[in-house]
Structure formats: structure tokens, C-alpha cells
Simulated scan of single mutants.
Amino acid sequence: MGDQRSFVKHVIKKGIIGIVVGIFLVGLARALDFPPVFQVMFFTYAMLGTAVFILLDAPSLQPMGGMKALVALLGFYVVLSGVYIGGASFWPQYDPEDEKGKIEKLLKAKRAATEQGKAEELLTRTKALAEKADAIMQRLQSVGGVAMASVPVGADSKRPSGTLPAATGDLVALGKEQWELQECYNCHKLSGQGGKKRGPEMDNIGSLMQPEELRQKILDPRSWMAEGFEKEYDKKKMPDKYKELMEDKEIDALVAYLSTLKNPSVNTPKPIKKK
């Protein structure tokens, strides 16, 4: 009887300690913003630990042997397995799709903000380019109007194919703006700035090609090839899109600007006619 009373006291004492430890773990988990399911798990682990310590003080069982011992051992493992399997079934199971959904939810706001920022930036750039294009068109129209005014009444106002208007200062300036607007600098280097890998340097192109040849190259990139750029020519690095993107006046302006580039100190590759 004395051993039983002592064991009951140990159960009560260690049970109280286990509950206190479990409450402490739950409070700590809550303070650290752990989900409720983890708080329950921590409390359960504290109770399991308490049960183990209580069993250490339990009175020894009477020795068993034979079939009785085998049945008791199997029964113990069945109960223990049932507790573990049953307990595990109550815990939330790992689901990859569920975890992906949680991650998606966390990143959705950031991704939306990023996409929105990119969209706003693209809209701003598009608006700026549109305004710049409108300004260029207005200036081109003013230059074209002056040229048209000089044509005698009754004369054919349409200039012959292959000829270009005089490279006036305004037209050259507009051509330089076309160089920037069409982003020619992405492939061609000029005055030490811009790209160089996909296209030749252009500083002396005006000395190597006539205006009508420059116009032909812009409208048909396959018509001419820069010496030493055979691979780029074969890979069609220069896009065949400017005849759709640019109007005749814009092409005239760009040709007028390129015709003024006559810097012999720069080794601009020799143009080779292909068509």
C-alpha cells in the first residue's frame, strides 16, 4: 500500500510539472507566432514526456513467462502502435499542393506589385516615345512643307525614286533623333558609344556608302553586308522591319544623318553589295 501511495504522489507531482511545462511551451509558441497546430503539438510532447517520467517510477511488474509473456508483449506493441498511428492521423498531413498554395499566397502581393511596377514603367516609356514620335513627325512635316513650297505649280511633286532631299540641318537633326528612336545604338557603335558586337561602327559610313545605298540597306538588310560581319549577316542580326515601322520622310532623315558620318579615323568596315 505504501508503494502505491508513493507512486500516486509521484504521478500527481510529475503530472502537475508536465502541465506547467506544456503551458509554458504553448505560451512560448504563441509569442513566436507559431500556428495553433504547433502549439497543440508542443503541449502533447510535454504530456508524452511526463508520461515517460511517470512510468520510470511505476512499480515493477510481476515476472511473466511463456505464452502469457508473449501475449503481453504483443499487446503492448499493439497499444503503442495504435497510439502513435492514431495520434499521427490527427496531425495535419503534408500536402505539396497545399504548401504551394501557401507560398503563392505569400508571394502574390509582391508579384502583383512587381508586375504592376513593370507595367507602369512600360506605359510611361511608351507614352514618352509616342510624344517624341509626334514631335518628330511635326518637324518632318514642316521640313516637307518647305520642300514642297519650292516645287513649281503643276510640276510633279513626287520626287524620283532613289533620290533624296538635300541634307539640311533640320533633316540631319531629325535623322539623329531617328537613330535614337529606332535604337540603332543597340547594335552599332557611334562616337564611342553604343553596341558593337552585332553591327559595325558607323562613324565613317557616310564616306563608304551613297545615300541611295544607305536607304537600300535600311529597307532591305540583306542587300549589303559589312566586311568581317559574315556571321552576323548569315544570322540576320539586322531586323527587316524598318520598311513597316518608318515612313519615307523618317527614312530620308535617317539617311541624311548617316551620310554626314565621315570620320576616317574610325575603321568602319567596308560595305559589300549582296544584291
Rank of each mutant, 00 (worst) to 15 (best):
G49R: 02
G66Y: 10
D95A: 07
F24C: 11
L181D: 08
S191T: 09
M64W: 06
K273D: 09
L107M: 10
L164A: 07
A167P: 12
E177A: 14
M225Y: 02
I85G: 00
F42A: 14
Q39T: 05
I85S: 06
S265D: 15
A31K: 10
D156L: 12
E230K: 14
M47Q: 06
V37T: 09
L61G: 08
Q4W: 14
A135C: 01
A226C: 04
A256Y: 05
A88F: 12
F53G: 00
P264K: 04
Y185I: 10
K127E: 15
P35V: 07
D248L: 11
Y77K: 03
L80S: 04
S81H: 06
G162V: 11
R125G: 01
K108R: 09
L25I: 01
V37A: 11
K235A: 09
D220N: 14
T260Q: 15
I54T: 06
S259N: 13
I12Q: 03
A51K: 06
Q138K: 14
K197M: 04
E212S: 15
A128W: 05
K105R: 08
V37W: 14
P271K: 04
V255H: 09
W91F: 09
Q210H: 06
L106P: 01
R222G: 00
F76K: 02
E230L: 10
G192M: 05
E180A: 13
R198M: 14
G228V: 09
G87V: 05
V79M: 06
A72K: 08
Y242M: 13
A29T: 03
Q182E: 11
E115T: 09
K197P: 00
K9T: 06
L107D: 09
K176F: 12
M64K: 15
L107T: 14
V40S: 03
R198T: 09
